[in-house]
């Protein structure tokens, strides 16, 4: 089976005044198989978000290769990149800020559909279906982001991300800004959507909370100072951490 996402030797060096200054991500390798949920865990500044930004091409990689569904997108631009975005979508950390304050949630959810040629009427119907799928009433399409709660907004963001049926869903700390009960609801929603989609949806789940990763992911990578220091099945990593940093990470939770 071919991986949905293949990351080889991915590196990001931030430079200052033309000189290499800070290595945020160094030689990261991993694969994501269809239907799999891979967690990436690490403290703030460990390079999780940099990895995600490089995968989504919001940031240029300094080295390495990103292969999405068999296609090398490491330097993709313009229409090639827009094509790649049909296969990969993202849910952001800050739900309210991920929607344009001047546009309704429905506009935001339907944007990708409209961009890929769906008529306004069809897009509207699809938006209602997506909202209901994510546990929101269909009339939320007419609301503005500041009129709904953070949890509701994150549900809408998930609806938006799944609108064009991507193969890869990236959740960048998607539950971190929500309180615990809402966090649980959003995770349940993600879990349900994942079960429904089966092998058609792979999830890259970026998180700093090891308990959530244990609950939600099939496999976990531990990122520390831009390098993968440990990987495996969450239960095993937690029970039997081999790396010092992983140990301290687990100790801090327990």
């Amino acid at each position: 089976m071919e991986p949905v996402l293949k990351i080889e030797d991915l590196t990001k060096v931030f430079s200052r005044g033309g000189q290499p200054d800070f290595t945020a991500v160094s030689h990261v390798n991993f694969e994501l198989m269809p239907g799999e949920c891979l967690g990436i865990i690490g403290e703030s500044g460990s390079g999780k978000t940099t990895v995600v930004n490089m995968i989504t091409r919001l940031l240029d990689a300094s080295g390495g290769r990103i292969t999405l569904d068999g296609e090398d997108i490491t330097t993709a631009k313009g229409s090639r990149l827009r094509k790649a975005y049909r296969k990969m979508q993202m849910v952001f950390q800050t739900p309210t800020e991920s929607f344009d304050p001047r546009r309704t949630l429905g506009d935001g959810i339907g944007e990708s559909l409209r961009n890929h040629g769906m008529s306004a009427a069809d897009a509207k119907k699809e938006v209602s279906r997506l909202l209901e799928m994510c546990g929101l009433p269909a009339d939320f399409a007419g609301r503005y982001p500041h009129q709904v709660s953070g949890g509701q907004c994150q549900r809408a963001a998930i609806a938006r991300a799944l609108a064009i049926r991507p193969k890869l869903l990236i959740c960048d700390e998607a539950t971190s800004s929500l309180d615990v009960t809402i966090q649980k609801e959003v995770l349940e929603l993600l879990g349900r959507l994942r079960r429904q989609a089966g092998a058609d949806l792979s999830i890259l789940f970026i998180c700093h909370d090891i308990a959530l990763v244990q609950e939600f992911c099939d496999r976990v990578l531990v990122l520390y100072h831009g390098e993968i220091v440990e990987q495996g099945i969450p239960d095993e990593v937690i029970r039997n951490p081999r790396n010092e940093y992983t140990k301290s990470l687990i100790d801090s939770v327990l």
Partner: peptide
């Protein structure tokens, strides 16, 4: 802002 990133990801 996150919403401009989201707009790019939406293929705009």
């Amino acid at each position: 802002t996150a919403y401009l990133k989201a707009a790019r990801l939406a293929g705009s």
